[in-house]
Amino acid sequence: MNGSSEIQGIASVLADRISAAIGRGFKIPPPPTIAARIAGTSQIAFSRFRNLESKPGLSTPSTREEAFVLNIPLMPAKYAVVSIDGRRQSVVQSPGKAYLFDLTSKNEVSLDAVYDSVRFHVPQASIDDAAYERGLPRVGGLHAKSLGQDDPVLYGLALAILPVVMDPTRATAAFLEYAALAVHDHLIYTYGGLPRGIQAVGGLAPWQIRRACDFIEANLAGDPSIVALSQECGISASHFARAFRVSLGMTPHQWITKRRIARAKSLMSQSAATLAEISLVCGFFDQSHLGRHFLKEEGLSPALWRRRQGAR
């Protein structure tokens, strides 16, 4: 098993554990869950947390651990009881707000609510790694101003990650990792209490750009991850993601997609391979996946582009 596959395997174990725990605790089918492991112990899980049938009683408290949950509602939801270490209140959750729960506390909610949200599960160790890689002091924990803090950034990230939670084939490992890095970056400043200062981040060195681009070209048919790319360049994943964007003007995920389109165009104009065959060779999941990205990039379908090339 290579490094990237091993990382994805560990993340899959985390996703399965979180999904099963949510299902047991809230008496719902285990929700769709994906996870990203960035580096070291840095990891995060994203779940589609949804219930459309009111039930009696309270949720079963999850196993206490040094981790945090952020619930990002997609629709209004009214909980008659939200209990944190025995302190009870009623809560109306609203889209656009983030609801932070510390898993070292005993958290219970009434099961009478009908809800639909995206749930982030973030271990304390992951937050520590994120701060360390940025040269920042350790974040002792996450704290919200209130139970329900306005947070358009997390709401936007939840909407972006939702289609991937429901269908992991819709995105690459690089996209998922970039989203995880963005969440970590937001959390350590917004909820970690660290002053938000301007970080002077330079780009990659010429040899790092060359090595990263060569690695991408050699692995387009697979799923080159930010972790693997950062290892090629000898720097942390978070440093690599920021420096890559400074140097090339786009995220690693966007660059990978761009290079896949370029390879597809080359194959379409120089070979008789079918679009389905070309899609797989270039790292797309299927022909429709290629078609969506090609149309967005070129403004026309692969088939039409190919016919025009033949006419020329």
Rank of each mutant, 00 (worst) to 15 (best):
residue 292 R to L: 01
residue 224 P to T: 10
residue 248 L to Q: 04
residue 47 S to G: 11
residue 114 V to K: 11
residue 155 Y to E: 03
residue 18 I to E: 10
residue 140 G to H: 11
residue 63 T to A: 13
residue 289 H to F: 13
residue 283 G to M: 04
residue 262 A to H: 03
residue 266 S to C: 07
residue 50 R to G: 00
residue 44 I to N: 01
residue 15 A to F: 04
residue 276 A to K: 13
residue 159 L to R: 14
residue 204 L to C: 13
residue 8 Q to T: 09
residue 87 R to C: 02
residue 121 H to K: 08
residue 103 L to C: 03
residue 269 S to P: 06
residue 260 R to T: 06
residue 169 T to N: 10
residue 49 F to C: 00
residue 309 Q to I: 14
residue 110 S to W: 05
residue 148 G to D: 07
residue 312 R to L: 14
residue 177 E to W: 06
residue 293 H to V: 12
residue 307 R to T: 00
residue 220 L to F: 08
residue 252 P to N: 09
residue 276 A to F: 08
residue 130 A to S: 15
residue 215 F to T: 12
residue 236 S to K: 04
residue 81 V to M: 12
residue 211 R to G: 06
residue 99 Y to M: 08
residue 234 G to K: 06
residue 159 L to D: 04
residue 166 M to F: 00
residue 269 S to E: 15
residue 31 P to Q: 11
residue 293 H to T: 08
residue 67 A to N: 06
residue 195 P to N: 10
residue 176 L to P: 01
residue 185 D to S: 13
residue 182 A to L: 14
residue 1 M to L: 14
residue 158 A to V: 02
residue 204 L to S: 02
residue 198 I to R: 14
residue 80 A to Q: 12
residue 292 R to P: 01
residue 106 K to P: 00
residue 311 A to V: 14
residue 23 G to W: 07
residue 311 A to N: 09
residue 98 A to W: 02
residue 125 A to N: 10
residue 193 G to N: 07
residue 120 F to G: 02
residue 131 A to I: 06
residue 155 Y to T: 14
residue 299 G to K: 00
residue 51 N to M: 01
residue 295 L to F: 09
residue 255 W to T: 06
residue 89 Q to F: 09
residue 83 S to I: 01
residue 21 A to I: 02
residue 66 E to L: 11
residue 78 K to N: 10
residue 131 A to P: 04
residue 73 P to W: 03
residue 225 S to R: 11
residue 51 N to F: 04
residue 78 K to H: 12
residue 54 S to M: 00
residue 26 F to K: 02
residue 30 P to Y: 07
residue 28 I to T: 12
residue 222 G to R: 01
residue 164 V to C: 03
residue 197 G to H: 07
residue 132 Y to L: 15
residue 202 G to I: 12
residue 234 G to R: 11
residue 231 Q to F: 08
residue 13 V to H: 05
residue 17 R to L: 11
residue 276 A to R: 12
residue 286 D to R: 04
residue 269 S to D: 14
residue 309 Q to N: 08
residue 212 A to E: 08
residue 278 I to Y: 10
residue 304 L to A: 13
residue 305 W to K: 05
residue 305 W to V: 07
residue 180 A to C: 07
residue 303 A to F: 03
residue 151 D to N: 13
residue 9 G to D: 13
residue 58 L to Y: 07
residue 300 L to C: 09
